[in-house]
Write a protein that binds this DNA or RNA. Structure first.
Lengths: 173, 173
DNA sequence: TGACTATATGTCTATATCGACATATACTAT
DNA sequence: ATAGTATATGTCGATATAGACATATAGTCA
């Protein structure tokens, strides 16, 4: 089976956020925040948009200069179904999906934050255990200092992330 | 031109860290910390190890049960040259490279931290500017709340990362 | 003993993705 | 005027990668 495709959902999300976008505008969008989480070159974007139109996820609108794509009802429900899919540790889609939720009161917002919190609490516990088992004495630390740094840094990062998630969940209620 | 390959350097780094590794052991390694930054499946690893042996970066040692790979002098200098290459904003290789620096007093350690600090200070300034230009009033925030969250979160994350880098650089001197 | 899982390595195929190449218009600075 | 850059879209080939399929041994649990 091929790797699960993300790009079509990214395009749906971008178009849904902005109302309508041309292929060129989408390629420019990847220079902004969304580019931190996903990237695609125009040679991928244009054929993908065409495919999505064929699938009825998008419709196009040509003003003579550019072809703009708008999201259809089917596209919207497809996007929401993807956003509602359970997060998993591997894919790391939290930030990307969050970017596509525009309304604070959207139930998907709490859903997403709650899932991410659970994942990160597990990860935090796992990293703590790793630190104990791998770096059980000073010698291990000095012999693998880079490894030690990235592990302790990852733990600190998880701690911050968990606190941030908890804060935002509180604010949501 | 093809995309710059990272995998061979990851394999060099892993083998250099552990002394010697079999293909199977490397595939298991990706379940640990290094898997946060890079991943490869065994169908990539085995042919790559063979290629690297041909190139003289590795030599092998068979105990009848497994084929272990060891790094050669050429492999070591190749790895160090890669570690010394300037970091760039896009590739995000900081943590991966750090993982491969074993000795705290290795000059590459300070080199890497210093570069990462410069990159992240730029990024921080850029994100601050984005926040000001994109979310200039409350309406922009409430209409694109997910985007607002990931942007403010990214800024906080950069701030933490910069502080951590500065602390570790201080400790190094 | 037989089923199951882990270890261990290998090949093959499908495809996701990038970079090169191509083309045309519009704007802009010299 | 004209060279250069930005906008705008498209196709094609190379390759990196994942996942399927294959095989063999060693250990383990019932």
């Amino acid at each position: 089976m091929p790797k699960r495709r993300i790009l079509p959902y990214v395009l749906l999300g971008l178009i849904n956020n902005k109302g309508k976008l041309s292929g060129y505008q989408i390629s420019q969008e990847f220079k902004n925040e969304v580019g931190e989480f996903w990237h695609a070159s125009h040679s991928q974007i244009y054929p993908e948009l065409a495919r999505m139109k064929t699938d009825g996820w998008l419709e196009d609108e040509d003003d003579g200069k550019s072809t703009y794509y708008l999201i259809t009802k089917l596209g919207q429900s497809t996007l929401r179904a993807w956003l509602a899919e359970p997060l998993n540790d591997d894919d790391n889609l939290f930030s990307l999906k969050l970017y596509f939720i525009r309304d604070q009161r959207d139930p998907l917002m709490e859903h997403l934050l709650t899932q991410e919190l659970a994942i990160n609490q597990d990860k935090y516990a796992h990293l703590q255990k790793r630190l104990e088992t791998v770096f059980f004495d000073e010698q291990q630390i000095s012999e693998n200092y880079g490894h030690y740094l990235i592990l302790t840094r990852a733990i600190e990062r998880e701690k911050n992330h968990i606190a941030w998630l908890q804060n935002n969940l509180k604010r949501l209620v």
